[in-house]
Design a binder for these strands. Structure first.
Lengths: 296, 296
DNA sequence: AGTGGTTACAGTCTTAGCCTGTGAGCGTCG
DNA sequence: CGACGCTCACAGGCTAAGACTGTAACCACT
């Protein structure tokens, strides 16, 4: 490496003395190093005689090669330092299917703007796979809804109203606001209990606080399916307002008083690297600048 | 450089101990070198703890970079060694205009076959420019006709008969062979005396030996022009038989007894590098295998 | 012949880089 | 639960690479 730099310096100056001066080095040491390089390669690189130095044919061929090695090395150094600052590398991001439609575009756009060399790979996944993936390190961060599990750290990115979702033409559909207890007598469609126990534990608490146990006539996985069932008149359900972006026909969203849903970014604190920190910074500024949930 | 090799070894083995064994090195020394590398870069490359070693995100980015630098270096070494053996590099070859038509194709073809990575550049030049170019180093070798000058070394590649060139229908045109003295009474066309004095000095000796001084009615530079003048009946001239390849109509070539012309390769002995030696080897084998002058 | 330029050789010294010995931390197994 | 085996890191000693200075040989120009 050093010998390559020395070689290039001598080749550029065509003089051991001047190259040595340029390198802040004694001419003798430079001679010695070039000889060592020539010995190592088994190739004579310079024709020297008492009145100067010229490149041999082999030396002329070696000069661009040596330059290429050095610049390759220099860029490697720059790249690893940028990677260390989290400006390069790869981030695998998981989006909960029901949050992807409004969270993914602004996040990806802002990241590409601030860190164009950071390679983002995004995945739309159900909640259980999302949590397992973050824990296993398959995902560096996930955009999802709480509650999750204790070993993941979360930060709230957006808060939005929760709405009752009623079939169009339902007696309560023209109300401006409802409370959960207004829906005690309805038929309900909800997601399967096993999809993510922490969510259903919270639902159970909410329904208990409203003083009833919902009569569940149908369970279906995924927000689009729930909305389809509501539109078909099978029952009512309860979703964050951003779910409106998935389906607008045949269903009516009526805000539920004092009921809010959070969207969070979640990650493993042990795996918090610089690139992840940059992602968290960017999402934090996003939270301040725009209403993320209105994008859908 | 060494540190890069060490880094790649550790990254591949994901263990300082095993990598050290692989490198025939104490684990402690390897640890030390990696620390030095990390200190030099200002970047932590490995997450080590008591039960193993993993690459950091920056390390993962650095691994392909380091590999690239090393392979670039390895190819540089191979390239310079091939260049040293004369298998790579560049050769500038000069061909005397009148020899190019039969010498250039076989030489270039044979060189491309034996040394495909040797870059050949060929030039068709008049004799004075050819000699000056070889002396100045613009050409590494030249294919031409002797005599030249003392400081160029030459090797004979081909010998061919010299012919009297007569207009078609000339009284002597149907003879199988002539001697120079048969042409004492003819009108002559020859090249200008200043084109290349050593040639004309030889011509003068030949004519003197034949017992006459040619009556020169026209001087013209270049074999095609001479042939044109002969075809036009202006006079006769004297050329190597290979000149037939330039023009066959209106002229008749009759061999001159005991008169032969050589084609030689010429070079500066001081500039004799490995690539040039390879060229000389190839031309030597060419001389053995085929009649070069018949190609025209 | 003297002067200023080139590179190469020889001797000295510093320190990079290797070694061995040791220790701390974690996991496994008797 | 302690011994053992594995990991990597630290400490001290030694060798040799790579720096320095001094000298010499050679050439060109004055």
């Amino acid at each position: 490496m050093r010998q390559l730099r020395y070689f290039v310096a001598v080749a550029e100056h065509l003089s051991f003395s001047r190259a040595a001066e340029y390198l802040n080095l004694a001419q003798q040491s430079l001679s010695q190093q070039i000889q060592a390089l020539e010995r190592g390669l088994g190739v004579r690189l310079f024709d020297r005689d008492t009145r100067g130095t010229r490149l041999t044919a082999a030396g002329q061929v070696f000069l661009p090669e040596a330059r290429a090695v050095l610049t390759r090395f220099d860029t490697a150094v720059v790249v690893v330092q940028r990677a260390d600052r989290g400006e390069m590398g790869r981030l695998n991001l998981a989006f909960l299917t029901s949050t992807a439609n409004y969270m993914l575009p602004p996040v990806v756009r802002a990241m590409r703007e601030r860190f164009p060399d950071l390679e983002l790979t995004t995945y739309n996944v159900p909640i259980d796979e999302l949590v397992a993936g973050v824990r296993a390190g398959r995902f560096d961060a996930a955009f999802t809804r709480p509650p999750l599990v204790a070993d993941l750290v979360t930060r709230v990115l957006a808060v939005e109203p929760v709405c009752a979702v009623l079939p169009a033409g339902h007696p309560l559909a023209n109300r401006d606001v409802l409370s959960l207890s207004d829906l005690a007598a309805e038929n309900w469609v909800l997601t399967p209990r096993e999809s993510w126990p922490p969510w259903h534990a919270r639902y159970d608490r909410d329904f208990a606080a409203a003083g009833f146990t919902p009569r569940v006539v149908q369970r279906a996985a995924g927000v689009p399916n729930l909305l389809g069932l509501v539109a078909a008149g099978v029952g009512v359900t309860r979703l964050a307002r951003s779910a409106r972006s998935i389906r607008r026909t045949g269903v009516v969203f009526v805000p539920l008083a004092d009921d809010h849903a959070e969207t969070v970014v979640a990650w493993m604190p042990a795996r918090e690297g610089p690139a992840l920190r940059n992602l968290l910074d960017v999402t934090a500024t996003l939270t301040g600048t725009a209403d993320l949930t209105s994008a859908g």
